[in-house]
């Protein structure tokens, strides 16, 4: 079992150093730095237009920063094409799930193992993953687009696991889900993490994310304004000003 740590491990699994990002003339990130240690759950909190989702795209190579470096497992991955980054052991649970709606659930899960060529172990992993998600197992041959939002979120998480990633990036995994599924998703994230996968999670709902995270960063208009352990952040009155919008949270 991991215990939440306040300090990142000596060599983090993922590190963003001094990232500056622009969309045209508009600057999205200002000298953004963050680290995710091996075995951690780290969440990135922030409101609308704080640059959260762009951070995710930077890690996955879908947006290129103008300055700064991204390091994964000790090697620079800045500027690499997305498939090459995925091949190094990064998995993704995209915002709004982004399943392949016209393909079956089984095909979606196997797409998660697209870069693996070991057919036998992929089949084993499929069985093992499905044990984690009994609801998904019942729907294997159904088109993914016909599933409910919560079920789709399960499939998206199972799909990411199928690639045997070292790190899974999740973009707002609880968005739009019923409270029941929100609880379920958070439990699963914790289970996946306990089984050895590092999690980097972008969330708007700070109190939910901090229930399971070890550490967190708070992003405001492209700058990290606060960082600390989950407990520290939950206690910090500043988090309200920085992120929850002051009086609203009170």
């Amino acid at each position: 079992m991991h215990s939440p740590t306040n300090t990142a491990l000596p060599e983090p699994l993922l590190a963003l150093d001094h990232i500056d990002t622009f969309y045209g003339a508009i600057q999205v990130h200002f000298d953004l730095s963050l680290e995710v240690g091996r075995g951690e759950i780290v969440c990135l909190l922030g409101g609308n237009a704080s640059g959260k989702s762009t951070t995710m795209k930077i890690i996955l190579g879908q947006v290129q920063p103008k300055g700064g470096t991204v390091t994964f497992a000790g090697e620079a991955i800045t500027g690499l094409a997305t498939p090459k980054i995925i091949r190094r052991g990064v998995g993704s649970v995209p915002e709004a799930r982004r399943l392949f709606g016209a393909m079956t659930v089984r095909e979606n899960l196997l797409m998660g193992a697209y870069l693996r060529s070991d057919r036998a172990t992929v089949a084993e992993d499929l069985e093992r993953t499905l044990d984690l998600f009994p609801r998904v197992k019942q729907r294997l041959d159904q088109r993914a687009g016909t599933l409910s939002g919560g079920e789709q979120q399960m499939v998206a998480m199972a799909r990411a696991l199928m690639g045997r990633p070292k790190l899974i990036c999740m973009d707002e995994p609880t968005m739009g889900l019923s409270p029941l599924y929100v609880e379920r998703v958070l439990e699963l994230v914790r289970d996946i993490n306990r089984a050895g996968t590092t999690i980097f999670m972008v969330e708007q709902n700070a109190s939910l994310a901090l229930q399971i995270a070890h550490r967190g960063y708070v992003l405001q208009t492209g700058r990290v304004v606060l960082t600390g352990s989950a407990q520290e952040l939950l206690m910090d009155p500043g988090i309200r000003d920085a992120y929850l919008g002051g009086e609203q949270a009170a």
Partner: peptide, 13 residues
């Protein structure tokens, strides 16, 4: 997969 969601397909590698 690419036909259905280009970005998501990229994220599968």
């Amino acid at each position: 997969a690419t036909a259905q969601d280009r970005e998501a397909a990229q994220q599968m590698g």
